[in-house]
Amino acid sequence: MKSKSLAKWLISGPPLLYLVLFFAIPSLIMAFAAFRFPGDYGGLLPLTAANPDTGATELLINFGNWRDFLTLENFQRFFEEPIYFELFVKSFWYAGLTTVICIVLAYPLAWLIARSPKKTRDLLVLLVILPFWSNFLIRVYAWMIILGPQSYFSRSLNYLLGLVGIEPVSLLFSQFAVIVGLVYVHLPFMVLPLYANLEKHDMALLDAAQDLGANAWQRFWKVTWPLSLPGVWAGTALVFIPALGMFAIPDLLGGTNSMMIGNLIKQQYLDSRDWPFGSVLSIMLTLTVLLLAALAGWAGSRGKDKR
């Protein structure tokens, strides 16, 4: 039917056009930039120039000279210098640690919400989401105050450390502060999928396990935990991936030694203005994220099959 396909285009056309223009094309341009040379004053070496006589834009690149404009050097640099690989590993470690801490903190919360009567449940869920609605920077700034050297928290901690004879520690601008910030910002993303999963569990299974003599610890590890894995995986995808690309938290809470991939990307684009190398790093981050998303999807579907 003709009017049907017309309607289809009229409805899906505008958002499609917008996202092609402001998402797909910019992404492709960035991917292409990874194969180009940096410009003399940063940015990219131009592929076109205005003709001095006519003023018309002319393409500088052609079949004879493309080697002057396109290169694999940027990728070579990434693979040859170990510091970049090390930075990826460190970012993985930060994001991984963040994810594990989020699982530990989210579990009792999600369990409590899932086992609460219907009325309180909505309120408890809202209480988890509410801090997430406040500005991201405010939440990071709050920790700058708490971990600051003059804060009540820092002073009481250092007082206690002094009692047992340990040197005072500086909490802000450290790896510890970065992890705290990452956990704080991402925690709701772990609680919600975990709660959605725990809510569906059949309580009769736990009763059965208890009747068969399992203690609380065994009931958790043999029944609840395996059943909750799809929720854990969903939460992991929602926490790990954004944490991996974070740059503002290490920037504000971290010291010189707590840089992550995101900080290096930001540095390449805004400070050293080496866009081609920044694009290589972005492509590597994208590929990593896609791989992880595929893995999480695979693990999640495997968890479902088991049930």
Binding site: L19, I29, S282
Partner: peptide, 26 residues
């Protein structure tokens, strides 16, 4: 649909910084 869901969901799934830098270049 194939293309539209991919274009709608990817910006949510990838770290924000990637979208930020590609739009900067653009």
């Amino acid at each position: 649909l194939r293309l539209l869901p991919a274009l709608v969901l990817t910006p949510i799934a990838i770290p924000e910084i990637l979208m930020g830098v590609s739009l900067l270049i653009f």
